[in-house]
């Protein structure tokens, strides 16, 4: 089985987000770029599956839609343990555009399992994985918090509102992954970092697809009013405020 993990390049999650003066773009100065947290967990789980010979997973590839500036993030995925990488050389215009590009890669290389993080921490769309599955005509399972392979069939835990389900789906499949899939993201060791330098990164040119959406501008949330402090000895006062001022009790 061949596994593909789709990775997105996002600002480090501790970033204090700032925009350009016209609020049209992210101010990218002083930003550390990282693998989107859910994609990193997906990669970790893919590598765990490959480590276990009984799963039949032979290779783990990462794919990214982006320009050459994202290479350090791709190298990081290789350092963590992916075997090779594919970069589709294009600005990721919107989710539809990205999913359409990834679909071409999956078709060309016929991956059995495609993993996508449930959302990216920048645009919070939760859309690329589902779109990709529809472009491919593959089944998809979303909110996946556990993934095993039994005789070519995927055994998946998914979160539903109000509980969890264990479902089975035959490969090929797109799994859209959330927290719980792996305990902690795997960290690149020195040996992995050295090896990553020579692992293959295939650069593919994009196919012609129109983006369906575009961001016009950003805005910051309204600043919250200053915190009102209540004496630790007198929580009754807090209850009073919540009841009479905020009117939420």
């Amino acid at each position: 089985m061949k596994v593909l993990v789709c990775i997105s390049n996002v600002p480090d999650t501790t970033t204090k987000v700032k925009f350009t003066d016209d609020f049209e773009k992210l101010d990218t100065s002083n930003i550390q770029w990282v693998i989107n947290p859910w994609d990193e967990l997906s990669l970790t789980r893919a590598l765990e599956l490959k480590d276990d010979a009984s799963t039949g997973v032979k290779s783990v590839t990462v794919a990214h839609v982006g320009l050459a500036g994202a290479e350090p993030t791709i190298r990081k995925a290789l350092a963590i343990g992916a075997d090779d990488a594919i970069r589709i050389n294009a600005e990721p215009h919107d989710a539809y555009y990205v999913a359409a590009q990834l679909a071409e890669v999956v078709k060309a290389e016929s991956f059995d399992i495609v993993l996508c993080g449930i959302e990216s921490s920048d645009h919070n769309g939760s859309t690329v994985g589902g779109m990709l599955s529809e472009f491919l005509g593959y089944p998809s399972v979303s909110a996946v918090s556990g993934l095993k392979i039994e005789n070519n069939t995927l055994v998946i835990n998914r979160e539903i509102d109000g509980g969890k389900e264990t479902v089975t789906v035959p490969a090929p499949v797109v799994a859209i992954v959330q927290k719980g899939i792996a305990k902690e993201p795997r960290i690149a060791a020195m040996r992995g970092i050295m090896m990553a330098r020579t692992k293959p990164v295939k650069v593919v040119e994009p196919v012609a697809v129109d983006a369906l959406t575009g961001i016009i501008s950003f805005e910051m949330p309204e600043p919250r009013a200053a915190c009102k402090f209540v004496d630790a000895e007198d929580p009754k006062q807090l209850i009073g405020l919540l009841q009479n001022e905020a009117k939420v009790l």
């Binding site: 999650t13 987000v17 920048d122 645009h123 919070n124 016009i216 501008s217 950003f218 910051m220 949330p221």
Partner: peptide
Amino acid sequence: AYSGNAFAH
């Protein structure tokens, strides 16, 4: 957008 740190049009 940006996980609740901003909004987008």
